[in-house]
Simulated scan of single mutants.
Amino acid sequence: MIRRGVTALALMLAAMTLPSEAHDYKAGDLQIDHPWSRATVPTAKVAAGYLSIKNAGEEADRLVSVESEISERAEIHEMAVNAEGIMTMRPLSQGVEIPAGGSVSLEPGSYHLMFMELNAPPKEGERFSGTLHFEKAGSIDVEFAVEAMGAKASEGDHSGHGH
């Protein structure tokens, strides 16, 4: 009996000292899952940010703006293929709606955040802070985990919902 208690205590202490790979945040009915970015070259002027947002509420909400410590400006963007088959990127001045009971993924090749006029390039293995502003849920401070330059989805996300 004592041995089992000591083993359980040792496992709890070990779990408390391990760094957490996934990092999630909550704002009202919204859950923000694993904000991340890619490392950039030192001379880069822009970087992108990604995350997913789940809305457990009965009303839609909207991500209306974003700020970050690494950039002078930040915008919400969308990449899409136009009628001529050309990939285009445009800012979404109205933000992104998160439907009631639904979710939205900001991921490479789709909706994403653009950090512009970088103060410092994001470096792999580091984190930087940002603030997401929602129409109804208000503002929430998050940290973006910086992945490798070529990351297609967050390497640290093991949640299975494929950013």
Rank of each mutant, 00 (worst) to 15 (best):
M1Y: 11
I2T: 09
R3L: 14
R3V: 12
R4I: 09
G5R: 10
L9F: 11
A10Q: 02
A10F: 08
L11K: 08
M12D: 10
L13H: 07
L13G: 14
L13A: 13
A14V: 07
M16Y: 08
M16R: 12
T17I: 12
H23R: 15
H23C: 05
Y25R: 09
K26P: 04
K26S: 12
A27H: 09
A27S: 06
G28C: 05
L30D: 02
L30W: 08
L30I: 03
Q31F: 15
I32S: 14
P35G: 00
W36M: 04
S37V: 03
R38Q: 14
A39D: 03
A39G: 05
A39H: 05
T40H: 03
T40N: 04
T40S: 08
T40V: 07
V41Y: 07
V46W: 10
A47F: 10
G49F: 13
G49D: 10
Y50N: 01
N55E: 01
A56V: 06
G57K: 02
G57V: 03
G57M: 02
E58W: 12
E58C: 04
A60G: 02
D61H: 05
R62S: 07
L63Y: 01
L63F: 01
S65L: 02
E67K: 11
I70R: 00
I70W: 01
S71P: 02
E75C: 06
E75T: 13
H77K: 07
H77I: 10
M79F: 13
A80P: 07
V81D: 02
N82D: 15
A83P: 09
A83V: 13
G85V: 14
G85Q: 11
M87L: 15
M87N: 14
T88M: 13
T88W: 08
R90C: 04
P91E: 03
P91G: 06
P91V: 10
L92S: 01
L92Q: 04
G95L: 03
V96G: 01
V96L: 02
E97V: 14
A100E: 04
G101L: 10
G101Y: 11
V104P: 06
V104M: 06
L106I: 02
G109M: 10
H112A: 09
L113T: 00
M114R: 12
F115L: 02
M116Y: 11
E117R: 07
E117A: 11
L118C: 03
L118H: 02
N119S: 07
P121C: 00
P122E: 00
P122I: 03
K123V: 15
K123G: 08
E126I: 11
F128P: 05
S129T: 13
S129G: 15
G130D: 00
T131Q: 14
L132D: 04
H133P: 11
H133C: 09
K136D: 07
A137N: 05
G138Y: 03
G138A: 05
S139W: 08
I140F: 06
E143T: 12
V146E: 02
M149P: 12
K152W: 10
A153V: 08
E155L: 13
D157F: 10
H158F: 15
H158M: 15
G160E: 10
H163G: 09
H163N: 14
